[in-house]
Design a protein around this nucleic acid. Structure first.
Lengths: 187, 187
DNA sequence: ACCTGAACACCGTTCAAGT
DNA sequence: ACCTGAACACCGTTCAAGT
């Protein structure tokens, strides 16, 4: 493993364990077995390291979406499965999820991250297009539908994380609420 | 003006001018004309100050939603107007908007903020209920519809801020995309 | 090319002291 | 009760120096 990959891995682990605040360059360096300013040989600064962590996660998610597209499920279920992957990721890696989908300032300043983000969004757009072709979604602009679905999912994740969406005990889960949305978007 | 109100105001202004990173207690203190640790007499720590800034904005937004509910518009337009208020706020005060709707960690640790947030969400729920009564929205659970609308709006704001939603030049605005969503949610 | 240790400026927070 | 100045621990970043 290259030092650069080690640093990205260390930052990911720290994000999972202690949130963004725990990702100090000193902690990252120590976890990767280098000094606290060795990262500067591989990333312009702390934000650039975080942007690369986010890009790596977006590429992994994009590959999983592509796999789902090739699966045997019906188009609407493929779409729901992809959204389910995002929901699961937001629960197992909340800080990394927030970095990927909830850090607009980071994306604005790092074109590479914008590219990864656009590629991931493009996978969702393809899944939505498949649904439209199968008459499983209304005939509205694909980009608008995809943006609304992804946006709603992200907003629900945040509402849940803020405690505004008391889930459980008979109340609908995020997955069920997204299924409702897809249903309402059906023709 | 009380010192406490001065500090909240100073923090709000700093958020608007330089984002969350600009809100150091030293800068807040200086802008309010007190020392850099005077805030500790009024707030437990920096996060508590930020939570109070967010609560203040949520109360202002809630009052505006209540006004909109009492307006002469049709229920669906009242709902769209309320969503428009949020979109406008996200554009004129992006950092404050992010604090209110995109800082789950802050909300989790500050019950007061959760209460303000729930009160604001309750206003949206009322507007959705009015739409349902007027047959302007499908007969799905009100809470789910309201959560989906608010969530989608928030997600779109973030996508736009990340540059993933190239708006303008013929492409739909956030307001138009939300109008599409409300339309798709109509019976 | 990659890494290290020292150093700098900055920040949140605490504390003893003042009125 | 409210405020201040000094101090502490921590952090991102830079730099001179090492291999």
């Amino acid at each position: 493993m290259t030092t650069r990959a080690n640093l990205i891995q260390a930052a990911s682990t720290l994000l999972d364990q202690g949130g963004e605040g725990a990702v100090t360059l000193r902690a990252v360096g120590q976890a990767a077995g280098v000094s606290h300013n060795a990262p500067y040989r591989h990333f312009r600064n702390r934000d650039a390291l975080l942007a690369d962590v986010a890009s790596a996660d977006l590429e992994t998610l994009g590959r999983r979406f592509a796999d789902i597209r090739g699966s045997e499920e019906a188009p609407a279920n493929r779409l729901l499965n992809a959204l389910g992957v995002l929901i699961a990721f937001s629960r197992t890696h909340p800080a990394r999820y927030r970095l990927v989908f909830g850090a607009p300032t980071l994306a604005r300043d790092h074109p590479d991250l914008q590219v990864s983000s656009a590629a991931c969004l493009a996978e969702i757009i393809t899944l939505v297009d498949d649904c439209k072709a199968a008459k499983a979604l209304a005939d509205a602009p694909t980009k608008s539908l995809a943006a609304l679905l992804l946006a709603a999912l992200h907003g629900l994740v945040l509402l849940e994380a803020q405690g505004q969406l008391q889930t459980g005990k008979g109340l609908p889960t995020l997955e069920e609420t997204m299924a409702l949305m897809v249903d309402l978007f059906s023709p």
